[in-house]
């Protein structure tokens, strides 16, 4: 019982962070058909900058986080600009975003070193959940922040004008153009929102765990896994898939051991793909 509860709480935190990360990746793909290999840059850069601002300028954690997310958004805009003229060329987009991600990874490696860094949490302390099951408060806060952000995003997409336009463009770009929607603006908005989400995910992750340069590519694996499972371009699909993967991940770690967690996660995904190639919620291309 207590084990199940533990898997539930830890898995929800993991899934929430995955969801913030992967839903942005999926949104960008949905709107522009860009496979953004530089999505992990937004995730890592915000976490690194928060740590840097706190350490070098003694900024408090909350202001530092806002700055970090701001820089993540800037990076997102930069990636948008970088891919603007080669967007039609799938291979080139992969190349450019991947090369940019590796460039930033090297930069982080040279300026911060290969060792992982940790961030001071928003809240210190431990919360007793049940009997001896204690959980760091920051992990519970991360769950709350992730869920609140995802709900806000859902509201944004289904209720606001920009959100509806994002939805329209990702469903049928030609029809959206005919309706007079400025596709370019929608794309920019999508990049900015997605980058901010990745930035938030990075900060939450670095508070619970740690951040290191190789994370830039590592998080892409999770994002890939999520979008394959949830279906490319489907926002709700990626959110559901994120939590599923979060639980699989934590449950495997708990039962078989950490070395199996990624192996099992990846094998599960390949298996699902063999049975249902378009993912759980995917539409046929």
């Amino acid at each position: 019982m207590i084990e199940l509860l533990e898997i539930f709480v830890f898995g929800t935190a993991m899934g929430g962070i995955f969801a913030l990360l992967a839903s942005g990746f999926s949104l960008i793909f949905g709107v522009s058909r860009i496979l953004n290999f530089a999505h992990g840059v937004c995730f890592s850069i915000s976490a690194y900058l928060v740590i840097y601002f706190i350490k070098e300028f003694s900024v408090d954690i909350f202001s530092a986080s806002i700055l970090g997310i701001f820089f993540a958004v800037l990076v997102g805009f930069f990636v948008y600009a970088l891919t603007k003229y080669i967007r039609h060329n799938v291979v080139m987009v992969i190349i450019v975003t991947l090369a940019f991600a590796l460039l930033v990874e090297q930069f982080l490696l040279l300026s911060f070193g290969n060792r992982g860094l940790t961030m001071p949490p928003f809240v210190e302390g431990i919360q007793v959940i049940y009997e001896n099951l204690r959980i760091a408060k920051v992990r519970l806060l991360a769950i709350a922040i992730a869920i609140a952000t995802l709900l806000a995003l859902e509201f944004f997409i289904s209720r606001t004008i920009i959100g509806k336009r994002i939805n329209a463009v990702s469903q049928d770009i030609e029809a959206a153009k005919l309706l007079g929607i400025n596709v370019e603006k929608v794309l920019i908005a999508t990049f900015l929102i997605s980058s901010a989400l990745a930035g938030i995910a990075g900060i939450l992750y670095a508070q619970i765990f740690n951040i290191y340069p190789a994370m830039i590519l590592r998080v892409l694996i999770y994002a890939f896994a999520v979008v394959i499972l949830g279906g490319l371009g489907s926002f709700r699909g990626s959110v559901v898939a994120s939590f599923i993967i979060g639980y699989i991940f934590v449950a495997t770690m708990k039962t078989l051991g950490a070395q199996w967690s990624e192996f099992v996660m990846l094998i599960t995904i390949v298996a699902i793909l063999a049975v249902r190639p378009t993912g759980l919620f995917g539409v046929k291309e």
């Binding site: 830890f10 001896n132 204690r134 959980i135 994370m215 051991g257 950490a258 070395q259």
Partner: peptide
């Protein structure tokens, strides 16, 4: 005897 991969950071559950 728990074996952890590179960059593993989920020690809380192990300590519990």
């Amino acid at each position: 005897d728990v074996q952890v991969p590179r960059n593993y950071a989920e020690y809380e559950s192990l300590i519990l």
